[in-house]
Design a protein around this nucleic acid. Structure first.
Length: 219
DNA sequence: GCGACAG
DNA sequence: ATCTTGTCGC
């Protein structure tokens, strides 16, 4: 699937999303501590310019192994629930430029914590076949209790009676993040990894570095 | 019917 | 996401 036959309308996107949704695999085969972690993010300019960035870090030490970017024109408007169709094209292009195959993708957005249980992290996982999970900065769906005040505290994120993710405190006294599985990874594993990637700041280093790189790529 | 609504 | 100054704190 490439930008050529990319859905142009919300109706088409919903159909594609529904088709891909059947391909999600929730079996967790990922090593407890994968050698590397790859973060992805996108930045926009005032018009329709869009820049994607992917950064692969060594899981131990969080040092940069490889990083790539891709600039393009936005081909799909932002629409809650169909967010993936806006960011996926440049993200996939940037991923294809990597020399080393990622071990796991850390996405800036949600996975199963989505109205139809298929957010950006699920799309990225299914389309690449790689383990993937999402770390969102704000809630999209579901409700939850307030996590304890210390780093590592977490509460389940529940939507329509289903546990779709976790609200995880990555730093003492700082607003928590929303973690959800995307593909080939368990929620608990995603949370452990998220904590390992956020030793100092609220957001995982993968997201912080990809965010910074995408902004630079936009200039 | 009235809000809410990832980035 | 992005528009935006100063300001509080380590």
């Amino acid at each position: 699937m490439h930008t050529g036959d990319w859905p142009k309308t919300a109706e088409d996107a919903l159909a594609v999303q529904e088709r891909l949704r059947g391909l999600v695999d929730l079996v967790d085969d990922l090593a407890e501590l994968p050698p590397t972690v790859t973060g992805l993010d996108v930045a926009y300019d005032g018009a329709d310019g869009i820049a994607a960035a992917v950064v692969t870090l060594e899981t131990t030490g969080l040092t940069v192994v490889e990083q790539r970017t891709h600039r393009a024109r936005a081909v799909f408007p932002y629409e809650p629930g169909l967010f993936a169709f806006r960011e996926l094209p440049p993200l996939l292009a940037a991923l294809e430029r990597l020399d080393r195959e990622p071990d796991v993708l850390v996405c800036d957005g949600h996975g199963l914590a989505h109205p139809r249980r298929f957010g950006l992290a699920c799309h990225l996982g299914v389309l690449t076949g790689l383990p993937a999970f999402g770390v969102g900065k704000t809630r999209f769906v579901g409700s939850h209790a307030e996590p304890g005040p210390s780093r590592g505290s977490a509460e389940p994120l529940v939507d329509a009676g289903e546990e779709v993710g976790a609200v995880l405190r990555t730093q003492d006294g700082v607003k928590p993040v929303y973690v959800s599985a995307g593909h080939r990874i368990a929620l608990a594993h995603a949370c452990r990894l998220t904590l390992a990637l956020a030793p100092r700041y609220r957001l995982p280093e993968t997201t912080r570095l990809a965010d910074r790189l995408s902004r630079v790529a936009l200039r």
